[in-house]
């Protein structure tokens, strides 16, 4: 996938590597016979920057010599819409656990994820959500003694 997006991603990785290396300079490298907390991070930072720079260079030259992707190839590439929808639900789900509690938030998350993934109607997603919540409660709360969050809304 040698395209512009990959070039941008590699550049971003390189910048992150430089940031890590700069942050690593805060810590002392010590002496050779008593290495400090900064030795390993600095070595890793250098390796990461060199590797990402080489990837950027390879990507740049590779892109120039490679033909653009065909329309058929573009059609075959996976869609982003559903994963993005699921990601948004997942973020909302995790954020909703402390206030709503695990039962309600899990029910809502499974319901909407199943709907976005194409499970038609209302009955099937509701049954799926109820079944999963009941199973998770049985497994984690009753069998494994994991105290799942009750939720601030319910006084937890």
């Amino acid at each position: 996938m040698r395209n512009k997006a990959e070039g941008i991603v590699t550049l971003f990785i390189l910048i992150c590597g430089l940031g890590y290396f700069l942050a690593a300079t805060q810590y002392s490298i010590g002496k050779l016979d008593s290495p400090g907390a900064g030795l390993m991070p600095r070595l890793l930072g250098i390796a990461f920057v060199l590797l990402s720079a080489s990837l950027l260079v390879t990507n740049w030259f590779g892109r120039r010599s490679e033909p653009p992707p065909s329309p058929a190839h573009r059609e075959r590439s996976p869609k982003l819409k559903t994963p993005l929808q699921v990601t948004v639900i997942l973020i909302l789900y995790v954020a909703a656990i402390p206030p709503l509690g695990f039962i309600l938030s899990t029910f809502l998350a499974i319901f909407f994820t199943a709907r976005f993934m194409g499970l038609e109607g209302w009955r099937k997603p509701v049954l799926l959500s109820l079944g999963t919540v009941a199973f998770a409660h049985l497994l984690f709360v009753l069998l494994l003694d994991v105290p799942l969050p009750v939720g601030a809304l319910w006084g937890g």
């Binding site: 995790v94 402390p98 899990t106 998350a109 993934m117 194409g118 799926l128 999963t132 984690f140 799942l148």
Partner: peptide, 25 residues
């Protein structure tokens, strides 16, 4: 089994499982 049935369940179990290791959000 349709992935639309399996995947949401696994996703929810991942969230609960990750919480269950240290009881931490």
């Amino acid at each position: 089994l349709r992935p639309a049935i399996v995947l949401p369940v696994v996703l929810a179990l991942c969230v609960i499982g990750a919480y269950g290791v240290n009881n931490s959000m």
